[in-house]
């Protein structure tokens, strides 16, 4: 029992911290891309795409994240898909978070009056142009704040990856507890690290929100 950052523990802590950031950032990127595609599917005029979007959201938003981790970790290898634990974690987190992004976007799209899309279409804009040039920019204002909540939850959700062999921030706790360091000190530092990440994300979204408010 001693100071928790002795014996190279500090570099392990930093490594875990960076791994959590890496995992969250990659998952955020893919979740965002996936969310946009799914939202476009859900409002598209093609029934099959709408159905697919709805099915995806229903499945992934209603399944506990832990189960998704189990699924990618244990159900893919028998199908001859072998992924390292980090990739598997990114997939589980992106698939899960993407469904929330989709629903936030869709709610935002629904706040834009139908007449806006009709005017765009009547001027000859296609589906993609109508969505990207007219509807989504107007949805942005109502989307940013709930989108912030989705992305602030992401690093916290990523802690599950620690239980699936990804040496991220939260799993650092396991290592140190086994070495019998003061449990309160360990959790204090881990909590502080998560707080730092959440605050940064919050700052980004607050800035975005101000920008959009000014740019009408």
């Amino acid at each position: 029992m001693g100071l928790i950052f002795e014996n190279g523990n500090f570099s392990a802590f930093v490594e875990g911290f960076l791994r959590t950031i890496e995992l969250s950032a990659l998952s955020a990127l893919f979740a965002l891309l996936l969310g946009f595609v799914l939202a476009a599917f859900r409002v598209s005029p093609v029934p099959v795409l709408r159905w697919f979007g709805t099915a995806w959201v229903t499945v992934f938003r209603n399944t506990p994240l832990l189960l998704l981790f189990f699924a990618v970790t244990f159900m893919l290898p028998p199908l001859d898909v072998h992924l390292d634990s980090f990739t598997a974690a990114v997939i589980a987190l992106s698939a899960y978070t993407g469904s929330f992004v989709c629903e936030v976007l869709r709610a935002g799209i629904n706040t834009v009056p139908l007449g806006q899309a009709e005017a765009a279409r009547s001027l000859g804009m296609g589906f993609g142009q109508t969505l990207s040039l007219v509807v989504l920019p107007q949805a942005a204002r109502s989307v940013i704040s709930p989108m912030g909540s989705v992305f602030i939850a992401l690093p916290r959700n990523s802690a599950i990856a620690g239980a699936f062999n990804v040496p991220e921030l939260f799993s650092f706790q396991k290592v140190l507890s086994e070495e019998a360091y003061d449990i309160f000190a360990i959790f204090f530092w881990i909590a502080l690290a998560y707080l730092a990440i959440s605050f940064s994300i919050n700052a980004v979204f607050s800035t975005l929100e101000r920008r959009v408010a000014v740019a009408r």
Binding site: G115, Q116, E118, A119, S122, V134
Partner: peptide
């Protein structure tokens, strides 16, 4: 559609 102009009751200008 680009060749058929439409004017709506509620204007529908891009806000």
């Amino acid at each position: 559609r680009a060749q058929v102009g439409m004017v709506f009751q509620s204007f529908n200008l891009f806000s």
